[in-house]
Design a protein around this nucleic acid. Structure first.
Lengths: 331, 331
DNA sequence: CTGAAAGCGCTTACAG
DNA sequence: CTGAAAGCGCTTACAG
């Protein structure tokens, strides 16, 4: 059995309600009594029982995060940051890898104060209507789902890609390719494609000088294979925008092995503004919402909703920005 | 507010203790009363409050898993399987990415019945003595730590590598290389190196015909770079053993790009018996404890300890086996 | 078979 | 400042 406030009360010679107040730093307890109790608790290795605490106080100060899969490297940084942000606001964080509906139910039973859901739906899976729950939920990256009952934080993907084209055109590039998953079943990917096209149009590029290479998927391998295809192209672009971190990594490997030097022979700009891009062979410039901003917005949003029952659950779309590293050059 | 058994009791016209019994499928409740209550609960979307439940029953039927980092692809399959195995035994699973000591404390406060810890210590980090806790803990992959107070499930790494050498020698290979992290600061890696050497000795190979290529790390890039080095070797081995999944993937890419065909020009056997090996360009044969076995042993061990307070917390070392796929051939 | 009562560890008005 | 009491949602002997 773990040590309880009653154990501490007995040893300290006070009532257990005094112990409770002391441990919660209540001003109703005399400073030295408080000090004595706090020290005793630390000595005994006391850990408050969150179950009991949340039963009576109606809040657990704990948030559950529903992960789509542990395999996406790009997510790990974001999850870590969300953990930190919420910890900074006084909340504990736990994770689940169950399917969203089951995970939400579990978190409900565990009395989580709030839930963060990664809606990382691959084109193959169909969207599952989330579990109905009273618990505040913030959903990430599902602004394409109109029926959601959740508050949403997402990135302006279309704007991000337009911005990317503008940036490269601004550097003087007149032949630009987008390499990414362009399958029509995935509306998130379609947003990027649309943004690229609009940006190209806006910058006066033609269908000759701005084209899309469909990687048919968003993994390392898809990027690698697209890179090999690019190497044998008759007329190569001078700049490439890749649609996701893993695609970028695979693409970079392929073109480097093919003898191209980045950025001398080819400029490269990646969607997905994640820190891992800086760790690649060539630090790759990025466009997208920075992980730290995303984490901050998700945490703030959730804390807001948890704070007031009737906070409006609207979606918040984050502006993308360019993170300049070493992979793009002036021409 | 969520619906409670009192709400159900009121609507069903029975006492709430009857509702509790009905929902726990007690034989003390008349079948049709039970049926009526269960249906009503489902209609109302009742989710039992685990906090209250664990407070009175002294168990939460929930297990916490402490993850080392979300970046290791090889772990995702294992974590998923552990989740499934424990679910099959009636337990819920939640995860934490806090440092082990903090995670254990959190799980203690959350009244977890048991904890699984991945001791995935990179050579750079130093081992942190785990938090003292009464809660049953199973630690994975830390059999090299003698001071641990936890039950341990681990793989016989040394035996695995010996087995790998024997297997390749059995196929007729007379020139075999081990490619992996051979830095001396990491005792887990050293176990593999030692196993390789012993196996080579046992099979009559000399230091000429069995050699180690230190990849100096266990990531994709380390494997890739080792692969490039192998390509320019004067006298190439006919078979290679790679020390970890990511190394294998990078190595495979490098030698394939270098024009080698697996297994025609080179046989490849990977440590880390994970399903992802089957998804590589060439399905790669593996040596190691299968993920399903590991998950099963971890779950069983934990459930055992949770079941009886005085179960012996000893370590269990799993035998490795060879999983034949398409990457090794007879010579 | 059903229900009233005690109690899990804790917080929080309320009396003193 | 301190403590006795009620109560959070639930389970489980115990009476009926």
């Amino acid at each position: 059995m773990n040590v309880t406030i009653k154990d501490i009360a007995r040893l300290a010679g006070v009532s257990y309600s005094t112990v409770s107040k002391a441990l919660n730093d209540s001003p109703l307890v005399k400073p030295d009594t408080k000090k004595r109790i706090v020290e005793l608790a630390a000595q005994l290795g006391y850990q408050p029982n969150i179950a009991a605490k949340s039963l009576v106080s109606r809040r657990s100060m704990t948030v559950g995060v529903v992960l789509p899969s542990l395999e996406r490297v790009a997510l790990s940084a974001l999850v870590g940051r969300i953990n930190d942000e919420l910890a900074g606001r006084g909340y504990e964080v736990i994770l689940s890898i169950l399917p969203p509906t089951s995970a939400v139910k579990l978190f409900q039973r565990l009395q989580m104060d709030g839930i963060v859901v990664f809606e990382d739906i691959s084109p193959e899976e169909k969207y599952v209507e989330p579990a109905a729950t009273e618990i505040p939920v913030v959903s990430i990256g599902s602004s394409h789902v109109t029926s959601s009952r959740y508050a949403i934080v997402d990135v302006k993907r279309k704007e991000a890609l337009k911005e990317a084209v503008r940036y490269l055109a601004g550097l003087g590039h007149a032949r630009i390719a987008y390499i990414g998953d362009a399958r029509e079943s995935d509306s998130k990917q379609q947003q990027k494609v649309a943004g690229f096209m609009e940006g190209a149009f806006e910058c006066g590029l033609t269908s000759e000088s701005a084209f899309i290479m469909n990687s048919d998927g968003n993994t390392w391998r898809h990027g690698y294979e697209a890179g090999r295809r690019l190497l044998v192209l008759d007329k190569r672009p001078s700049a490439v925008i890749t649609g996701a971190f893993d695609v970028t990594a695979g693409f970079l490997r392929a073109v480097q092995d093919g003898g191209l030097s980045i950025p001398d022979d080819l400029s490269l700009l990646s969607y997905d503004n994640v820190p891992q891009l800086a760790e690649l062979d060539v630090p790759v410039s990025a466009v997208g919402a920075p992980v730290s901003l995303l984490a901050d917005r998700i945490a703030s949003r959730l804390v807001d909703i948890m704070g007031s029952a009737n906070a409006i659950r609207m979606s918040e779309l984050l502006d993308a920005c360019i993170e300049e590293r070493a992979s793009c050059r002036n021409v």
